[in-house]
Design a binder for these strands. Structure first.
Lengths: 244, 244
DNA sequence: CGTCTCCTTGAGGTTGGTCAAACCAGGTGG
DNA sequence: CCACCTGGTTTGACCAACCTCAAGGAGACG
């Protein structure tokens, strides 16, 4: 007796050309035909459960990853065990750029919630980038923007006080969420206080206290990881205010 | 009466293919013939006097710059006037990667001593990168390494104490100088205490005090900007020691 | 020789870190 | 259903690292 053929409909492969993230992700600015060719090399997805790593420091670098759904953090490790969160990545953002230079990953990328990524084999991406200019531009743009982002974090770490850091962090998050169609005032943090602290160069207690202070001042409503921004302008004023 | 034609010998154009920095700079890994083609697009130098800027935030981005001689710093400016030094660049290193993403420079690049740079028009570089793989790879490698470097600075700013930061800074400098044929133990700082402080997220007084402490401990000899590293291992131990 | 910039050093203050206790939400198992 | 556990969070008290302010010194240069 034949087992019944599975009825499960094979989901239509979500190609770049029909992906709802294409305005945020690598395909931005590509023509229809370019995008179709890009679809050709991006034919693999990976699912990463919350708490699992997409890649780790030292692993061989083969591909970039575009976040389709979910949320990641990246960390560098110091020799002595100290850890620094270098970024949080959400839908449409790329992971793995750090690995290009040495053919090895230099950060750990860990999913903070169940996530899915598109695998972009880097050799094929480079090959394609030689063939059509728009992809080459976009790749360069993305790398350059990552450098600019890092400079912003350096400014934050090098010269802001705790309140300013947290304000800048929250504004950045809400802006990115807004670009993805979410509310600019309601957000659910995917990361712990400790992870926020590591990113901002603060201890978790300081992060917690600063959240409480913002709540006391009526700038935020904080219910654990559920944050409501009541006074976005107050946050904005904090990040653009003189150091004292 | 004709003024005498100037006898000034036109100096032989130093091409990438015959540049003594080619093992540190963009041409690394290119074949003879590739390098000759690269020479074709790199036909302009700029001299930047000490204290002058090579480019400033907001200026249109046209080219990358490779430092031939001299020394630069790059700074980002916060809205409120705060400044953060994001890097120091020496011979063979590239300036301007930050501008690719937005077609505008996002940092100021200022010469800390009389300097000369090679102008690498970016359009032509991209064009060439589409034609030969080695250049494409090298460009990606350089951008990726800049990202990795930035992550290192984040780690430093986010989780190291003053002594560790200064030790890491000095080790980094001596390593880069050594790669350029200079002594690993004798160095002349091109930047002020304030600029070091800005880079390391410290105030100039703290930098000065930390130098003094290193001197008291016999790790360094400090005569203003003239530094002698007496105990490189002690510095190394500082950067790789646990936070406490 | 005076001026300027940069550097050093001291005294005292503040921010954020450390340590410790208690709280909370969610999950597990009796 | 409740007791219990766990990981994460909040809050307090105290402390240390670094900052601020201030004064003086060292070199470079006209």
């Amino acid at each position: 007796m034949l087992s019944p053929t599975p009825i499960r409909v094979e989901p239509l492969r979500t190609a770049c050309s029909s992906c709802n993230l294409r305005e945020l992700c690598l395909p931005l600015g590509l023509s229809e035909s370019d995008m179709t060719r890009l679809d050709g090399v991006i034919n693999q997805r990976r699912t990463v459960a919350r708490g699992q790593t997409l890649f780790r420091v030292g692993e061989e670098f083969h591909a970039l990853y575009a976040v389709r759904t979910g949320f990641f953090k990246t960390c560098v490790n110091a020799e002595d065990g100290r850890v620094q969160v270098t970024g949080f990545q959400m839908a449409g953002e790329l992971l793995g750029l750090d690995g290009i230079g040495s053919h090895r990953h230099t950060v750990d990328a860990e999913a903070l919630e169940d996530s899915q990524v598109c695998v972009l084999p880097f050799d094929e991406l480079e090959h394609l980038a030689r063939e059509f200019t728009a992809l080459q531009h976009q790749l360069h743009r993305i790398m350059s923007r990552e450098i600019v982002r890092d400079h912003g974090v350096m400014l934050l770490l090098g010269s802001m006080r705790a309140e300013e850091r947290l304000a800048a962090f929250l504004l950045n998050l809400t802006q990115r969420l807004q670009a993805r169609g979410y509310s600019a005032s309601e957000l659910v943090l995917r990361m712990t206080r400790e992870e926020i602290g590591s990113y901002l160069g603060l201890k978790l207690e300081t992060v917690s206290r600063t959240f409480s202070r913002f709540q006391d001042e009526g700038i935020l409503e904080v219910k654990q990881r559920q944050i409501t921004v009541l006074e976005p302008d107050a946050l904005q004023r904090l990040v653009s205010s003189a150091a004292c």
